[in-house]
Write a protein that binds this DNA or RNA. Structure first.
Lengths: 201, 201
DNA sequence: CCCGAAGTGATACTGAGTACCAGACTGGCA
DNA sequence: TGCCAGTCTGGTACTCAGTATCACTTCGGG
């Protein structure tokens, strides 16, 4: 009883926290779109969201994080998707299938995804931060990809897991980038296939 | 006569400027190694190099640039190396051969290269900046790689040049990273081959 | 000898990110 | 009911990167 009560409280707190994050994130996204990322200060975001600058930095490590934290959460999902693939597949193909997780995001609201990409495109710092988040994906994926590789080279002299994962992520980014550049004239799925087929052939 | 005099002056100035850059860069490298990048302020570097903070930022756009600017200069060299390769080669193999340019750097002073990698490893900001510099390589390489590809897909819907170039750079980074992790037990060349062979097979 | 261009340094400013402290809220316990 | 401890919050002050501005010097050319 106490335990469940405590856990309910916990989840309540977490839910409040998540709701807060979402709200601030929405406001920040709007401000970034309206006046550009660099022209928007943390002060301003905090003011509009009704919290202090101090509290803002308790919720988000950096100014950019306010619109990028959700990317971190995808790492475990990608790992889960990868390990669920049959081991008979090539690691590359399993990675491709894992990325279906990414394709599902905003699949029903492409305009939202497009706006997001356009925002990133306008700001080098933002792009760099995203790449850092994706780097966390890579750190999680590497070990599970490694279990699917064979060879007589010692693990600490084997660049293959790193290469496969990093290149796959770059394929994803290339697909997204091309998608933005052609104004979503071709689906992300087709572009991702084109991208990843480039290296498997 | 006037022209040559002017151009000599120019080159003199440029040489002074380059010498200055080198000197400041050397000092900064030492400081970064001694006390870490984040613990070293621009103020400190400028003081030791005998110039003002203002002038420092005239020479280097950011604090990290002081030890990373040389990376930018490699872009044109990579392009030159690529276009010099026979068009009968696969683009991937031509990229591999272009990276011989990178392998030649500090080939005779591996310890220096190793120290550099270790410095980068300790600092996420530094790594991100390097990736940005390498992104400039990619922008230069993409068009020349594109000329070596055939296909019926419109150029603005074709992620292949992006994918090839970005993945090749990631292979280079994976090779460097593995090289550092195994304390240079295997040569960068072998590791780069292993990395790039992972994707061509 | 003067003139203009380029390089330099001092000062001041913005804004991100950090550290610290003090008050408010809450849930548990006597 | 009243107290206690942990957590959340806001305020203040600080460091430091990066930018803008202005005044001073240097130096080559007319």
């Amino acid at each position: 009883m106490q335990v469940s009560e405590t856990s309910e409280k916990r989840s309540l707190r977490d839910r409040t926290r998540l709701a807060m994050r979402d709200e601030v994130s929405t406001i920040a996204t709007r401000l970034f779109a309206e006046q550009g990322c660099t022209n928007t200060t943390v002060e301003q975001i905090a003011a509009e969201a009704g919290l202090s600058r101090t509290t803002f930095f308790r919720y988000f490590g950096t100014k950019e994080d306010v619109v990028l934290t959700w990317i971190e959460d995808l790492g475990p999902q990608l790992v889960e998707a990868f390990v669920a693939r049959p081991t008979t597949e090539t690691p590359w193909h399993s990675l491709r299938r894992s990325f279906d997780v990414l394709l599902q995001i905003n699949a029903d609201a492409p305009q939202k995804a497009l706006d997001f990409e356009r925002m990133l495109e306008a700001n080098p710092t933002m792009r760099a931060r995203r790449r850092e988040k994706q780097h966390e994906w890579e750190k999680l994926l590497r070990p599970v990809v490694a279990t699917r590789l064979t060879g007589d080279v010692p693990a600490d002299q084997d660049p293959r897991p790193r290469v496969l994962v990093a290149s796959a992520v770059e394929c994803w980014n290339a697909a997204l980038d091309t998608w933005r550049r052609c104004d979503a004239a071709v689906s992300r799925e087709v572009l991702l296939d084109r991208a990843m087929d480039t290296l498997s052939a």
